[in-house]
Design a protein around this nucleic acid. Structure first.
Length: 456
DNA sequence: CTATGTAAACAAC
DNA sequence: GTTGTTTACATAG
């Protein structure tokens, strides 16, 4: 598809990330001849199970760089067959860099700028490739490749836990402690066959593999898990299969959570990216009433917000005028309080799909200078973030209103988010539900963001 | 400003 | 009561 093509990773871009991707030989060389190279190699190897695709992505260049460790041991095309060179390696690792993780490679990168940048489009920052891997990677490697965790049942019984725990050193606890929920959940899911778990099992996994559940200081860990599952696009809900290993009761309890393809390939991204960065700018959600629980969540959010606002106003009154929050510029909303379906437009109804926040909304779309275009931009890959697969035949299929956006000038920046003007919006890789927006490279921001409608 | 954790409201089940 | 969604706020870096 054209879009797809246009989204191809452009080697020519002079963006920080592209530099990296284009100069693998540089750092590769460094790796080769530095004393740490072996360490790095192991380190890298350990990551393989996580991101064979990552390696694949680099293959074209790495091989020609005559790097001894060409990753040839792997099928560079294998699991990530749907990836192409245009898709920059991008595993966003949540763990903060740590001294011990900063292998020589790091010195050749500009962790700060590059990582930040790549964050924007899910680029991959090798320097960030740290992790628990030092003590966790092993197990992962073994389980994923040589000893598939297939043994571990979807039901995280002691077995799966044990296998995981056995290998990792004592440091594991600390590691877990340092890892954000999103990363931990990611780990939990990665260990499962099918990368799928039910909430309850995730809880159990946490109990057994982390100290979040036991640490007295960690409160609301379950809530946090749920929050991360809901908010992080790396996780998606899937219906529970009926029968099989699943009991009736289990099947009844909610969905199963699964890692998205892109998450499996590239790792999990910061949950933050999926949050609205414009706390006080409301909008999107209201614009796109969500079905069922989404709707309920939205309602809850609204209510919560109201309450919060109330509290805030009272607080402000007490403390006298405190400068408004940046986002508090929004004018009072006229009319009745929002309800999930308030903003249903006739067209939405006609279309027969719920105006979920995850669907591009015509109004919303129009509300901002959204360009759905296909620019050869490093960001382009974002469009494909979810599956790394070709776009649907037509974005309009997912988001009928998209067609209206096509006319927009392609000259406009694709993203308005981080790294760009607004910088405040989540440049995020939308969750699978955001597919539409994503695919069409809609800037998630004000544009496709909930807030847009309400504010503007 | 970003990332993260957490509280909490609320709806659906 | 559990699950899921969302918003808000606090804090650390």
């Amino acid at each position: 598809m054209d879009i797809n093509e246009s989204l191809q990773w452009s080697p020519g871009c002079d963006l920080p990330f592209s530099q990296l991707s284009q100069e693998p030989s540089n750092y590769q060389m460094t790796q080769q001849y530095t004393p740490d190279s072996s360490a790095l190699y192991n380190y890298t190897a350990q990551r393989l199970p996580y991101r064979s695709s990552y390696n694949m992505t680099y293959s074209p260049t790495t091989t020609e760089s005559s790097c001894p460790r060409t990753y040839t041991g792997l099928d560079l095309v294998g699991s990530a067959g749907n990836m192409n060179e245009s898709y920059p390696p991008s595993a966003y690792l949540l763990e903060p860099q740590k001294p011990q993780d900063m292998l020589d490679i790091s010195s050749h990168l500009t962790p700060g700028s590059m990582c930040n940048f790549e964050d924007d489009f899910e680029g991959h920052c090798p320097a960030m490739m740290k992790s628990e891997d030092s003590n966790y990677g092993h197990s992962r490697f073994d389980s994923d490749i040589s000893m598939p965790n297939s043994i571990s049942t979807p039901e995280p019984q002691v077995t799966s836990v044990d296998t995981c725990k056995s290998e990792p050193s004592h440091e594991d606890a600390n590691v877990d402690k340092e890892q954000p929920y999103a990363q931990l959940i990611y780990r939990a899911l990665m260990e499962q066959e099918g990368h799928t778990m039910v909430l309850r099992d995730i809880y159990n996994w946490f109990k057994r593999n982390t100290d979040k559940a036991t640490d007295k200081e960690t409160k609301g860990w379950q809530n946090s898990i749920r929050h991360n599952l809901s908010m992080n696009g790396a996780f998606e809900k899937v219906d529970q299969p009926v029968g099989d290993a699943m009991t009736r009761e289990e099947a009844k309890k909610g969905f199963m959570w699964r890692l998205t393809d892109s998450a499996i390939r590239e790792g999990v991204k910061s949950t933050t990216r999926y949050r609205s960065k414009l706390p006080n700018k409301r909008g999107c959600r209201s614009q796109n009433p969500a079905p069922q629980r989404q709707a309920s969540g939205a309602k809850g959010g609204q209510a919560a917000r109201k309450a919060a606002r109330l509290r805030r106003s009272e607080r402000l009154r007490d403390t006298r005028s405190v400068p408004m929050h940046k986002g508090d510029t929004y004018p009072p909303r006229p009319g009745p309080a929002y309800t999930p379906f308030d903003n249903f437009s006739p067209s939405d109804l006609a279309m027969g799909y719920p105006a979920s926040p995850y669907y591009c909304h015509s109004e919303m779309d129009f509300g901002s200078p959204v360009k759905q275009e296909a620019l050869p931009s490093p960001f382009g890959q974002n469009l494909d973030i979810l599956s790394g697969q070709p776009y649907p035949d037509s974005p309009q299929d997912l988001c009928p209103d998209m067609r209206y956006l096509l006319p927009y000038s392609p000259e406009e920046p694709m993203f308005y988010g981080s790294g760009s003007e607004s910088g405040s919006e989540p440049m995020t890789p939308l969750s699978s539900q955001d597919y539409c927006a994503m695919d069409t490279s809609m800037p998630q921001d004000p544009a496709c963001h909930p807030e847009a409608g309400e504010i503007y």
